[in-house]
Write a protein that binds this DNA or RNA. Sequence first.
DNA 1: GTGATAGTTAGCAGTATGGCTAAGCATGAT
DNA 2: ATCATGCTTAGCCATACTGCTAACTATCAC
Lengths: 113, 113
Amino acid sequence: MAKHDTDLSLLFHALADPTRRSILTQLAETPARVTDLAGPTGLRLPTVMRHLSVLEEAGLIATSKDGRVRTCAIVPEAFSPVRTWLDEQQAIWEARLDRLDAFVMNVMKERGK
Amino acid sequence: MAKHDTDLSLLFHALADPTRRSILTQLAETPARVTDLAGPTGLRLPTVMRHLSVLEEAGLIATSKDGRVRTCAIVPEAFSPVRTWLDEQQAIWEARLDRLDAFVMNVMKERGK
DNA sequence: GTGATAGTTAGCAGTATGGCTAAGCATGAT
DNA sequence: ATCATGCTTAGCCATACTGCTAACTATCAC
């Protein structure tokens, strides 16, 4: 349960909110300013800022400020721990199903004797 | 932003908790009773029950009661909306990067004239 | 410098989350 | 019939989340 775990919690939590997901989708299209991101959501700036903080702390976006404009961009690599975790889970239950298959095959073979 | 969206929120939220993820991992190995799941967590039964409810409402596990024992099992297909969403996002930003590539190539070609 | 623009900070309100205890209700074992 | 087991329900507590407004800072345009 190392930092690895914390990362995943941050990631999943960041992705659990529809507003944040739609912001991510928008950023997947193209980088954008905070105000541009706020527009479609219909939320107030401070609220959107909070969502952006969550996304940034999860590492899903990166932001930089130029003058008074903050530009946000997606960080595609940030999704990979999620994929990795999903793959791990899948590997575990697939291995189990394989063993189950083997067991069933064995039973059938025994029956055949 | 239909039910699809709600599903994703439920899924991501369910996955955002370390306890719930470790329960899922345990269930990926093999189905288990509530008490068996509670053991490793060190949490009290009612607390674990709550986590199980969250997982079940997200569709990640299925449970059935036989006598006084409730057995929980993972639902592997339940993960697929997550994968699908990740794939969609990836497709979007990959398309963008492709366009960017094309643009750069074009600029270089123009320069070559 | 004045004013508009883009973010930012502080703090409030309502709800949700994650833990607990205590008590209840079946079911299985003796 | 009694007792232990396995789960369930109800309800409490502290904290965290998501929205808001109001007020502030920093830049850019004139």
